[in-house]
Design a protein around this nucleic acid. Sequence first.
DNA 1: AGTAGTAAGTTCCTTTTCAGAACCTGTCAA
DNA 2: TTGACAGGTTCTGAAAAGGAACTTACTACT
Lengths: 147, 147
Amino acid sequence: MKWNDLQTEACPVARGLSVIGDRWTMLVLRDCFLGVRRFEQMQERLGITRHVLADRLRKLEANGVLRRERYQERPPRHEYRLTERGKALYPVLVSVIEWANAHVPPTGAPSVTLVSRETGEPILPVLIDMNTGKEITYRTVTALGSD
Amino acid sequence: MKWNDLQTEACPVARGLSVIGDRWTMLVLRDCFLGVRRFEQMQERLGITRHVLADRLRKLEANGVLRRERYQERPPRHEYRLTERGKALYPVLVSVIEWANAHVPPTGAPSVTLVSRETGEPILPVLIDMNTGKEITYRTVTALGSD
DNA sequence: AGTAGTAAGTTCCTTTTCAGAACCTGTCAA
DNA sequence: TTGACAGGTTCTGAAAAGGAACTTACTACT
């Protein structure tokens, strides 16, 4: 099976990863959430090759995660911004951050954490089921549907 | 920059993705959460090549996400199980599922959703900050540390 | 007029990774 | 002795990624 065939699968994990499971893609989106909008800045910050970055931005735009906006004419220049669909990925990013900080300790370098804009206090992310108010773990939940 | 250099970065997104951001890796973990433990089953379910599956399982074991347990001697046979570190990835998986079901609609095929084991009702996952009790969005939270 | 700088890519070439299939090893059962 | 099973390894060709240089359409400086 090829990677691109995943888009049509019934499993939502496969469908989701067909969009964001690519090498570099989530790192590009991290920069987008940090407010980086331009090709040159992303390329320099990420250390990704220009070729791959152009490809990822194209695919993210095609999938409706980013949109390409012209910010000047002559010469034409564009910047990339998160769409609503892109912004909806924030929980995925936060979950990765939380997991990495707890389980993939940085080697020497200081860690980056998330803090509340309001209080400045570190945040403690937990997945809650809004219907029951309880925490979601692999024990309390099961998959339903044709898999 | 090479992909493997990400492990030593200060950014937790980069460190996390150096472990789980690889092609196929999260799909292997999906199967683990579904209770699949053996090489043959994973290979058949995923449609991944045996070579790549062996590689991913090796890396996941090296990173402490899975552990390899012998379940019979002569001939030696092993199965793969999630460690605590692996189980801690459940929120990442759930976030991907939630996003995909909302934003990457299946083409024709019926969707797979998560339900509460207790009530059988569909769950509605939301990321909450345990300190404030409020929902976490890209507006309410900001990164702190050297990035 | 000529030179340098900027932004967003594209092109070319090499190296790495992946897909697909076949093969290997040790054991049991027919 | 042949076949099946489980968990891999080995091989070859195709696809993707890395690295560096080049392109285009401007603006600003000398």
